[in-house]
Simulated scan of single mutants.
Amino acid sequence: MLNVVVVDDEPLARKGMLYRLGDYKTLKVVAECGNGKEALEAIAKHQPELVFLDVEMPGMDGFAVLEQLQNQQLPMPYIIFVTAYDHYALAAFDVNAIDYVLKPVEAGRLKAAIDKALKAFESRDDQKHKSQLAEVVSRLTGDAAETILERLSNEEPVVDSRYPDAISIKDSGEITRVMVIDIDWVDAAGDYMCIHTRDGQTHILRKTMKELELELDPRLFVRVHRSAIVNVNTIVKLQMLPNGEHQLMLSNDQTVKVSRSYKDRVKQVFKGA
């Protein structure tokens, strides 16, 4: 029997995962966590063999949890990534020990991931485990697997944080620190950028669209127009208008026009598009 920790910041998602895992007699859930900090504490306390780890969480995401596990030299459990956004599933990959499942979780896909973890545990090999972890992180981040293995060997952070967690915006003698995960979308206004955040505020940034785009993680933000960037987590619908043009409907009920030159890039956000 494998001890399991379930990590997800959405209570309903955790409840759904716990319900599904109840069908597996070989798994014993020893803790459920709502954020990265709780996950680290639970892993240190219970030393589970398997963790279902949400990728997108405020404050400390799934990649940061992996980094802290390595930094704190905690036992590395097998990881099954869980994500609601299929842009993380850059390719279908076949590994024996760790995998990912896409929300909403499908029973067949979950079973396949669990079967891989059980099979790997039966013939557990630390170096093989590290290689498989490196392969998954490589596919999710774009970093070379060899680079990730080198970081593991040197006890360095697994994930290289190339993009800032926050953007500093100067205005009227004040500096406001805006968390990147709170940005819904961005549009250009002449030589300025209007940063629209989930709390309904708009911040004015003196920077070009190209400069800002380089600071935003392309896995989380997509350019939809020469004057607009959207957080993929806020996208609800891609709509075709009567005139043949497209627009995005965001979770805040805002609509953003999609230009023809960026249409294909936007469609990559939608599974099967």
Results as ranks from 00 to 15, higher is better:
139 R>E: 01
122 E>V: 12
140 L>N: 00
113 A>P: 00
121 F>W: 13
122 E>L: 13
123 S>N: 15
119 K>H: 13
111 K>R: 14
121 F>L: 09
138 S>D: 06
110 L>P: 03
110 L>N: 01
132 Q>V: 04
139 R>V: 06
131 S>W: 04
126 D>P: 09
144 A>C: 08
129 H>V: 08
138 S>C: 08
127 Q>P: 02
136 V>A: 03
121 F>Q: 13
141 T>L: 03
120 A>E: 02
125 D>S: 13
131 S>A: 14
116 K>W: 08
130 K>L: 11
131 S>I: 06
138 S>N: 07
110 L>K: 00
115 D>T: 11
131 S>K: 09
121 F>R: 09
130 K>W: 08
144 A>D: 12
139 R>Y: 05
138 S>K: 04
130 K>V: 04
121 F>T: 05
111 K>E: 13
120 A>V: 06
122 E>H: 11
124 R>H: 14
121 F>E: 13
136 V>F: 01
136 V>W: 01
140 L>Q: 01
110 L>R: 00
133 L>H: 02
129 H>R: 09
128 K>W: 06
112 A>R: 15
143 D>L: 10
110 L>V: 06
134 A>Q: 02
115 D>G: 07
114 I>V: 15
115 D>W: 06
140 L>T: 00
144 A>H: 12
125 D>N: 14
110 L>I: 05
114 I>R: 00
110 L>G: 00
124 R>W: 12
132 Q>P: 03
